[in-house]
Design a binder for these strands. Structure first.
Lengths: 205, 205
DNA sequence: TAGATTGTTAATCGATTAACAATC
DNA sequence: TAGATTGTTAATCGATTAACAATC
């Protein structure tokens, strides 16, 4: 199969959300024209993106909403539940652990790690905060493959190193630090101040 | 001037962070070769990106760290302070209002809005939470141009509409909703569950 | 069958990278 | 001057879009 560009994956996730809403409304068919109108994408882009991952449509009719929805679930790995480890029980960690969108899509933060004695042992929404020293043990036990790093930048690389040694294969990193990770580990970075900077850059022009 | 691609702006923000650290260490010169090594970019890409916004180097020597740092500050609009309005005093709003990276780069969340009577009137780190109904008045008074939307998806468009009518020109949106905004307003979206989905997609392959 | 719309190919556009002239 | 490195141009690569044959 042709390889799926990252940017296409991001759009698939957006398509999926809208297709789910059509499914809920009981719609049976939808055209690339209609999808494009609603989400402000070109119909040809939608057809191209969808063709990477399967054939969910019927010529002359449009896409079968149910089939499309299931196909997108499958492609994005959302036809199952994922356990996620959260590293860092600060303000950001707290917000992420309560973020409803994760659970809605099958991501469950099932353990939180921190190094602060005042936090270790507490529970947030039923999830225990454990000592970072326990990370390898707990992550291996639970067979966790996805982790979120929400620690200060100066601890981020250390956290990543332990995570990868513990068997984590994909990391979402919120620390403003360019992590060094091995081939085969998927890394996504969200840098909140970079995002704001692109706004101030725009306003400056 | 040639127009500056969004993706280049993002990299400039990364370059800037590293250049600042060189400045702090007292380094006077740095080459695109060295920058590339450190940040894992191609030297030619760095030179191309920097050439969009100015000439900070000297042939045969490298880039003047101080000049480069100031140039990046200026381009990104970080040679000044920005007041930012935060809409939504939930968990995510709380984390954003405490996020140290914003203040470090000159972004000050100077007002928070919510519609919940139990929150209105409280203060977070010295910043008052005000009624959403006061948004047009307060934003105009303070001449705020940048806002962050951290409300549930079903309130996001309404929040955006009020913001734009109040004179806001750039929005960072955390709600998983495709906002309709007029030409001339800069919109950046951060969709936390989409980011996780690209990890689960990777793990599924 | 005629009309509609997918899936795919070809053309276009934009971003990255290599190459190199300019110049310190 | 010789060596180094920028700034910029040209070549390459990859993503978007238009066009259209396939087919319901």
């Amino acid at each position: 199969m042709e390889k799926l560009p990252e940017i296409t994956v991001n759009r698939l996730s957006i398509y999926r959300r809208y297709v789910k809403s059509l499914l809920k409304k009981g719609k049976l068919l939808v055209t690339s024209e209609k999808l494009g109108k609603k989400m402000h994408f070109k119909p040809s882009q939608i057809r191209r993106d969808l063709s990477y991952v399967g054939q969910f449509g019927e010529r002359g009719k449009g896409y079968n909403v149910k089939k499309l929805s299931q196909g997108l679930d499958k492609t994005l790995g959302l036809d199952r539940k994922w356990q996620v480890a959260l590293v860092g029980a600060g303000n950001l960690g707290r917000a992420l652990s309560a973020y409803p969108g994760f659970r809605q899509h099958g991501f469950k933060i099932s353990v939180i790690f921190d190094n602060s004695p005042t936090k270790i042992g507490k529970t947030w929404l039923g999830v225990e905060i454990r000592d970072i020293k326990q990370m390898p043990k707990v992550i291996k036990e639970k067979k966790i493959k996805i982790a979120i790093i929400a620690v200060p930048y100066f601890s981020a690389q250390q956290a990543a190193d332990i995570l990868m040694r513990s068997g984590v294969k994909a990391i979402l990193n919120f620390a403003p630090y360019k992590l060094a990770v091995p081939e085969g580990l998927k890394l996504k970075n969200i840098d909140l101040s970079t995002e704001l900077q692109s706004l101030s850059c725009f306003l400056t022009k």
